[in-house]
């Protein structure tokens, strides 16, 4: 950038940007702080909260009372499971569409995207009934299936935009040198595709982890992931701010960290390549 920026201006912008940034981030910071306080202290005024003593007791209580780890594990299984299965189905499809495009490839892509536009509530009743009849209600398997299907279009699209960027000439060169389809796939394509696959994986885990329509409607006590477990705090008994904070902190921390790593991919994945 050739434009000159005065230090004074930069200082003003710095102060302003930090204030706005901290204000937006504050609720997250606040629950982290409250999670290390006792229930009695957590409802006090902000000054009293800050200067009260710190404790880990809420974390222990949450685990003890509700078997938090089970719900955490449910979240891991459901988000990871649906993402991996989604990738297994989507990688060949996206590969074929990117490297062997046919006349109707574009239509297929657009159609896949259109399934994503379907409001979930429009198929709530049938899915609920199908699940009830097949015994899939409140099972991890059921949620893995649904989340795989709702995120499949995003996975295919993201992979497609990444694969599209791999120059076709490289594949042709490999073919000229006599590489078989299998060798082409393993030695040429895979190494170049890994970064794209990794970002797709990351973004999809985030989306599946935070999904809160199907997870709330299709689970009860047994298979409930963290989204549904945390929702049980909407009708609590007694003081619960510190416990809610501890449960929330643990629920968002892993995804927050993954999210920060995937900022760039987020734009691409969620806009279906419309903004890069």
């Amino acid at each position: 950038m050739a434009r000159k920026v005065t230090t004074r201006r930069k200082a003003v912008v710095t102060v302003l940007a930090w204030l706005v940034g901290l204000a937006i981030f504050f609720p997250i910071l606040w629950i982290v702080i409250l999670s290390f306080k006792s229930e009695g202290d957590a409802i006090k005024t902000p000054f009293e909260v800050i200067f009260s003593s710190w404790t880990f007791e809420s974390y222990a209580t949450v685990q003890e009372r509700s078997n938090y780890f089970r719900h955490f594990l449910n979240s891991v299984v459901i988000s990871l499971g649906s993402t991996v299965i989604g990738l297994v189905i989507a990688i060949p499809a996206a590969w074929a569409m990117a490297f062997v495009p046919g006349r109707r490839t574009k239509d297929v892509l657009m159609w896949m995207l259109s399934t994503k536009m379907l409001p979930p509530v429009g198929v709530l009743v049938p899915i609920y009934l199908i699940f009830r009849n097949l015994g899939l209600l409140d099972t991890r398997l059921g949620l893995v299936i649904v989340l795989t299907l709702i995120n499949l279009p995003i996975i295919v699209w993201m992979l497609y935009t990444y694969f599209k960027e791999i120059p076709g000439e490289i594949l042709e060169a490999a073919r000229m040198d006599g590489a078989s389809l299998k060798n082409e796939l393993i030695h040429v394509l895979t190494p170049m595709a890994v970064p794209g696959i990794a970002s797709t994986l990351l973004l999809n885990i985030i989306l599946a982890w935070n999904e809160a329509f199907w997870t709330l409607n299709l689970t009860a006590a047994k298979a409930a992931p963290l989204t549904a477990f945390i929702a049980s705090y909407s009708s609590p008994e007694g003081l619960f701010y510190a416990k809610l904070s501890a449960a929330s902190t643990m629920a968002i921390a892993p995804i927050l960290i993954m999210g920060w790593f995937s900022q760039k991919q987020l734009v691409r994945g969620l806009t279906f390549g419309a903004v890069k």
Binding site: T14, V20, I24, P27, A231, M258, G259
Partner: peptide, 27 residues
Amino acid sequence: QPFWGQGIVRILVIAPFFVMPTVSALV
């Protein structure tokens, strides 16, 4: 605009997007 700590502020601003809906609503 150029300012000090751009990367960190960016991280702070993006964070709410990764908070699951039930957590942000209840908080």
